[in-house]
Structures are given as C-alpha cells and as structure tokens.
Design a protein around this nucleic acid. Sequence first.
DNA 1: TTAGGGTTAG
Length: 620
Amino acid sequence: MAAPSSPATPMTPVLIHLLRGASDLASIAATHAKLFKSGAASTLSTSNHLLAAYCRCGAMTLARDLFDGMRDRDVVSWTTLMSGYTAAARPREAISLLRGMEFSGVRPNVVTFSTAACACARLADAGLGRQVHARAEVAGRAFDAVVATALVDMYGKAGCVGDARAVFDVMAAPARSAVSWGAMLAVYAQNALGSEAIQLFAKLRTCGTGVAPNHFMLSSVLSACAGAVRLGVGRCVHGTVLRLGHGSNQVVAVALVDMYSKCGRYNYSRKVFDRIERPSVIPYTSIIVAAAKYGLWRSALTLFDDMVKEGVQPNDVSLLGVMHACSHSGLVDTGLQLLCSMQSKYGIAPRPSHYTCAVDMLGRAGRLEEAFELAKEAQIEGNDALLLWNSLLSACRTHKRLDLAIMAGQRVSEFNQDVFMAGQRVSEFNQDVAGGLVVMSNVYASAGQAVKASAVRSNMRLRGIRKNPGCSWIEVKDTPYVFYAGSVSCAGARADDAMGAGARADEVMVLLDELECKMREKGYTGRLGSARVSDGDEDDGEEGKGVMVGVHSEILALGFGLLVVPKGMTIRVMKNLRMCSDCHEVFKLISDIVQREFVVRDLNRFHHFKMGSCSCNDYW
DNA sequence: TTAGGGTTAG
C-alpha cells in the first residue's frame, strides 16, 4: 500500500494509540486504512508502528510487504521485523535481516543484538550464535545486560553450558539482574546439570546479591531437582515457593508436580495438582504422566477424561502419557484404540513416539507378531526407528523369541548403519545404538549362541561403542549415594561421607549373604553374586571386582539402604536402566523378609515393594 | 518512542 507523502495529521496520535492496543488483524488493517487515507502512513515512525502491530499478531507476509515498500528504514524497522520473524518461529529470516541491515549501512544496536541472539537460541545454533556474539563485541554491545543474558540463553539452548557460564561470569555483578540469574539457572536445568543449578541457586541466596528468587528461577530449580532426583532440596525449594507467595503460579506448580513425581512421591504431586485452579494442558499432562509411571492406570484415564470434559484440548504428549499408562498396566486394546483414534477424535497425528509406545505395549503383552507388523507399518526412519526396533528387540528377549529377535536385530543394524552413514556424531546416538546391540548380544547369550553374542560385543568394541554403566543411587540426609554393579564404593557422595558407604562395604556384603540364605528358604534359586546377564539392561560384562561380581547396582543400593535408613522408613532407590526380573524378585522377597517397604524408580516407572509383592503386579 | 533477555509435561 503506497501512501501519498504527507505529514502527520491531528488524528495520527489517536490512530497510533488504537494501533498499539490492537491485537487482531482486522482492527490493525482498519487503522492502517485510516492512516493511509489521512496521509500519515508513510512517515517512518508510523510505518514502524504498523510494522510492530502486524508482527505482534503474526501477520508476517503483511509485515514484510510493508517493510519492503518503506522508503526509509531505520534500526527500529529492521529490528522490529527481525523480532517478528523470531516470534513467528522463523529465526533464519531474522538472521538474514541482520546481514541485510548491515549491508544497507544501518548499524545494529543492543536491541538488534539481543533479538539476533534470541533467533540463534531458537535455532540452537552455537556457530551462528558465536558470530552474533563476535559482532556484538566488535560493536561494543556485548556487555549490555540484556544482550549478555540473551547470549547466556543462546549458548544454553545450543548445549554450550561452559560458554553460557563464561558470559554470565564476565557480567558485572550489578548487571546481573533477576533475568540473568534465571537464564543461567535454566541453562543448567535444561542441560541436565541439576547439581550445578542447585549450587548456583544457593549462591544467589547466600551471597548477598540482593536478587530475590522469582517464579522463573523457582521453576528452573525445581526442574533441576526433578532431573537429579533431589527430594530434600526440592522440599526446601517448595518451602521457599510458599514463603514468597509463588504457590499459585501454574508453571511453578507444574514443576512441583513433576519434582515430587520424579522423586517418588506421587501423593504430593497429586496434592499440588489438585490445588491448581483451572489446570491447562501441561499440568494435566504432567499428572497423567506421573500416574502412568506409578502404574495408576485408572487415575491416568480418569484425569484424561476430566481434562477433555473441562474443555482442555489434549496434545501429543497427553496422549503419549495415557498410552504409557495403558502400556504399563497391560491395557493393550485400550492403548491401541487411542493410537487409532487420536487423529480422528483429537486431531493429533501419531508421532514416532506413539508408535514406539504401541509396539512396546504389544511386546510386553507377548503379542510379538502384531508388534512386528505395526513396527513395519509405522515406516519410521533415522534415530526414531532405532528406538522403535530396540523396543521390539527388548520384548523379543523377554519372551525368548530368538526368531523375531534376529529379524528385529537386522532392522536395528540397518538403521544404526544409516545413523553412522548419515555422518551423525557418534556420541549423539551412541547410547541408542549401544542399547540395541547389548540387548541383541543378550538375546544370543540366552539362546545359547555364545559365539554370536561375543561377535556382537567384539563389533561394539571395534566401533568404539560402549554403553554407559548401569547405576543406582539413594538419597540419605540430602546426600546422593551412587552404586555401580559389582562395587559397593559409592561415587557422587561427599568426601566427608558421614554414612561411610565405602567403609561399610563389608557390612553390606555380609547382610546380602544373610538375606540370600533367607531367600533360599523361601524358594529363591538364583544367586545374588551372579545376576543373569540376559535378564536385565544392566551391562555386567566388564563390571565387577572382588566378591560382589555381577551384583546389580540396585541390590547394592538396597543393602546400603537397609543399613542406614531407619526401620519404618521406606527405602527409595533410583536406577538409570530398567530393573531386571531377577532383581525384581529379590526386592519382593527381601521386602517380605525384613518387613519393609521399598520404592524403586527405574528407567520407565516406579515399583512399590511391600510384603513380598510389587505395585506393578509383575507387569512392566 | 515504534524493536530486546529467563520458566513447566515427553
């Protein structure tokens, strides 16, 4: 729309005011027409207002047309459009505008650099982000508080935590606002560095920074506690949330729901959820996923129904949560119905994760042929395919179907070749590739084909693929104690280890020996010191020195827990892999022998052992 | 006087 050039009229301020308050395209276009008629639309200031209004409502084509038709453009015009593209999830166009404006001789300012850093954060592209950082430094703008904070966020989103911290550290203390602290805490929480987030939060509180924790920081720290399973710290943070009056913030409440759930306290999660007023899709999904992990399928399905009745539109994550609940409870047909109807009923197209969940569900239930057919039909590729076929492979091992395992194993190797051929970094997929190969090796071993099992292992060694070791840990008096298969010494605990996990290794072994004898009296036929390699995900191959050879990490954690956790208190063990059936049996028997309750959180879910049985009813 | 920084479910 080319406007006749004319100065602003007396009506212009009124129209600009209307424009600033408008959020829908129709009223913006109407005001634009009036400004055009009055002849004021062509001034730089009015054009910038119009540009901002179009960007605000996401009308990027109109914004771009207006921008292209402008006779003059200043730094505000360029930056407004950049910001619009970033908000509209088109960050590449924002970055290309940065180049365009420099080419046109318009100098970027602090707002431009922070917007550009934000665009790079969206792209999670550290290479591009470094270029923006360098240009900001050359222009002398990198130390601006907002630019620096945007750079912290950018490096964090791109996974470069060290660079984020370096930018944060060089910021002068007064420049470090609540937003800067919040950004750095989020960087740690989002990059699975829970302990670092907790330490930084403690520093904020104790170093006289004068910055009060706000809801951004609290939700990040709670998320860090959830990820690192630090219930003690999480509870303290909950206290801070209540004291500072952030209890009614929905994002903080979701972080609390998730923290309690991941730390093994579903009841607290549920209490926090029940106090949320008009929960949106994320709180609902959070509690549904929690219920699913605890095997509470009735609760998960009821919550899902409640959500739909309340008019809250479920999304792909909510549906995945309900499907997981079905999967962990053997409700295979209900789960499959959800998969089939999610597009027609809720308008959500199934994603690879939904197919993987359905294959897993069929596999657990022993319906392996159907699982195989579904896996083929899903036509998923790349790393998603690796996860899907690994899941089927795992089910074949559980149900001892070597024939199907070999076919699934072929698919896994095809995809893992593809993954390597595609030039992906080895570390990126290493654990998925390694997981599949370990299971394949275990399938062969359990079918008595030792030569093939060892060939898979040799192949892994040749290609430099190694699976991260399985470990378990328990938190005692706010300190985590970590155990690895075959070793009672514990990593991760404080140097002044008050409980003496290492020093008490002999006591743990004596106790486990005694318990093993008592388990035999109850009919246990396995051996704690030779956990079956083929049964679990834990890679016993190269672990184990001394007397505890082969003992899985969760058993060691339990032994230690029995020594140090007072009688009457539940012993809570966390594990980074799926619990094997042998250990599951051992936990059931010991809960009966010592008359205590144990909760184990494995890779997929929680198991609550009490009086010789488990909440999962042996189905997981 | 129009443009800029951090949070929650998988």
